[in-house]
Deep mutational scan, measured.
Amino acid sequence: MEVRTIKVFTTVDNINLHTQVVDMSMTYGQQFGPTYLDGADVTKIKPHNSHEGKTFYVLPNDDTLRVEAFEYYHTTDPSFLGRYMSALNHTKKWKYPQVNGLTSIKWADNNCYLATALLTLQQIELKFNPPALQDAYYRARAGEAANFCALILAYCNKTVGELGDVRETMSYLFQHANLDSCKRVLNVVCKTCGQQQTTLKGVEAVMYMGTLSYEQFKKGVQIPCTCGKQATKYLVQQESPFVMMSAPPAQYELKHGTFTCASEYTGNYQCGHYKHITSKETLYCIDGALLTKSSEYKGPITDVFYKENSYTTTIK
């Protein structure tokens, strides 16, 4: 009895394709271990004539594949690729409408935090270190965002349907971005203890939790000093293409032309909904596939993004 075979390709990165001759009487799992086709788990399936010449994702289970996976995804987590594939199996079914010149995501599976993050990423200057993220990001900007969303979920250790947080998501993504040249110098002034300067680099240099107003941050924000008295913390120097200011959701007025974009969060910790506000020729609110415009805006804002380049204080 002759062994019926077909020729397929296996890959971990969709760049390096490895030619395989597979036995049609055995499952993919018996031949390769966990195997995925377009995100779908085909591990328990036997090869079919229609699979001839198709590319299958496999887990990096030998040295060659491990090197290829690390170079593309910059992670050695053995569960990463499987999590990416199972997320992709959902995100490829989502709709990605162009809204006001940006790629958004039609609401499904509690994905409003991903839509808000995706919209924000198209408006701030950011370059990702893992080629996987950078490639998928370019495709997302062009309207094909399924891979990018699935990668975000995998890097953030999230599953489809789980509630997510924009600030946490951005923080994970910033860790995989090139923020080497970003720098922030802060000064804390206390009447009792004097003053202390701190220099922050990388992710810490672009994120701040405690106030939404970048102007206020430049002037000074009140913080408790270690001595128990009130101290003032203010920005001395900022070198970065953008800054992200966050605070627990509270009524906040966004003035046209003073910011790049913002995240609105309605609801409580267990259950809520994100919308995205962007400042173009007027203010726009993007909620999944829905767009509304207004000249002014007041609502429960939790993150505001500002364009920056270089700032030095005039406070002496």
Rank of each mutant, 00 (worst) to 15 (best):
A115R: 01
P47M: 05
Y297L: 05
E239I: 12
D303V: 02
F148T: 04
S263W: 01
Y252I: 15
G101P: 03
Q237M: 11
E281M: 01
L186P: 02
K92P: 04
L290T: 14
T312S: 11
Y284L: 11
R4L: 13
F242E: 00
T278E: 06
C225V: 01
L179R: 01
L119Q: 03
E239A: 08
P47C: 06
Y138W: 10
K127I: 09
D287R: 01
D41I: 11
A262T: 00
I315W: 14
N157D: 10
M244D: 00
M207L: 07
F70P: 05
W107M: 01
N100M: 09
A142P: 03
Q175E: 11
S310I: 13
G143H: 04
V160P: 06
P131W: 04
N14C: 09
Y28V: 04
Y234P: 02
V185S: 04
V21F: 15
L254D: 00
K92L: 12
P97E: 12
Q270W: 06
A142G: 12
F305S: 03
S181W: 07
Q195C: 09
Q123L: 05
Y137A: 08
T282F: 09
A205E: 01
L88N: 02
Q31G: 07
S104C: 13
Q134V: 11
L118R: 04
K191M: 10
L114V: 08
A146N: 03
P224G: 08
K158R: 07
A177T: 11
V203C: 14
D180L: 06
K46Q: 13
L114C: 02
K255S: 10
Q237K: 15
I124P: 03
C190E: 01
A250C: 15
G220N: 01
W107H: 03
D63A: 10
M170G: 01
V8K: 04
I45V: 14
Q98G: 06
T103W: 09
T292Y: 11
P47S: 06
R4C: 15
Y138H: 13
G288V: 01
A142K: 14
G39D: 09
H18I: 08
T116L: 05
F242T: 01
N147T: 13
C193V: 02
V8F: 06
F32N: 11
S263M: 08
H256R: 12
L200G: 01
S263L: 06
S50L: 12
V166T: 07
T211A: 08
A145K: 04
F70K: 08
P131Q: 06
E125P: 11
T76G: 14
I15P: 06
D180Q: 11
I277F: 02
T43S: 12
G272E: 01
T11F: 06
F217P: 01
E264A: 11
Q238N: 02
F80V: 05
Y265G: 05
T260S: 07
C190Y: 02
V3S: 14
P248M: 15
A115I: 04
E125W: 04
Y36L: 04
Q216H: 13
C149I: 09
C193E: 04
Y306V: 02
D77W: 01
V166N: 04
Y306C: 00
Q122P: 03
S213L: 05
D62Y: 06
D287N: 05
N14V: 06
F174M: 07
I6P: 07
K92D: 02
M207Y: 09
V221P: 02
G228T: 02
C225E: 05
T226H: 14
L81K: 06
K280T: 10
K46E: 13
I152F: 00
T260G: 01
P249F: 00
S240V: 01
Y84F: 10
D63M: 10
F305E: 00
K191L: 10
V12H: 06
L173D: 03
T226L: 10
G288S: 01
N89T: 11
K92N: 09
A262I: 00
K298T: 11
N14I: 06
R83V: 05
L133E: 02
T75W: 05
S86R: 14
T159K: 15
S279Y: 02
K201W: 15
Y57G: 06
Q175R: 13
C156H: 01
E215A: 09
T55D: 03
V166Q: 04
D63R: 08
D13T: 08
L114Q: 04
Q195S: 13
T116S: 08
V99P: 00
T314E: 12
V243Y: 01
V185E: 06
V189G: 05
S171Q: 09
S171T: 12
A231Q: 01
T226Q: 13
S279T: 09
D109T: 05
L102G: 05
E308R: 06
Y113Q: 04
F128L: 05
L151C: 01
I6L: 14
L173K: 02
L59K: 13
S79A: 13
T169W: 02
F9D: 09
G202V: 02
A40I: 13
C182P: 00
Y214L: 13
T198D: 09
E264T: 07
G257F: 02
C182M: 00
N147M: 10
N309P: 15
L81M: 10
E162R: 04
E71M: 08
K229T: 10
Q270E: 10
R139T: 11
H48S: 14
A108I: 07
S240R: 00
T64E: 13
E68Y: 05
T120D: 05
L163C: 13
P130I: 06
V42F: 13
Y269G: 15
I301K: 00
P131L: 04
Y138E: 15
H48I: 15
L37R: 13
I124Q: 02
C149T: 12
R184A: 14
S104A: 09
E162Y: 03
Y172M: 14
A205Q: 00
K298Y: 15
G194I: 01
H176D: 00
D135L: 09
E2C: 13
V185W: 05
E296F: 15
Y252F: 12
R141T: 10
E253Q: 09
G39Y: 10
A108N: 06
N129L: 07
M209G: 10
K316F: 13
T199E: 15
K219I: 11
P131K: 07
M26D: 13
V166Y: 06
F148I: 08
L59P: 06
L291F: 10
A40D: 14
E239T: 11
N110E: 05
L102Y: 08
Q134T: 12
H51F: 06
P60D: 09
M170S: 04
K54A: 13
F148S: 02
P47L: 04
A146T: 05
Y172P: 01
T258E: 15
Q270K: 09
K46F: 11
W94N: 03
K44H: 09
S310R: 14
K183D: 05
Q230S: 12
E168N: 09
D62N: 14
Y72V: 06
H176E: 05
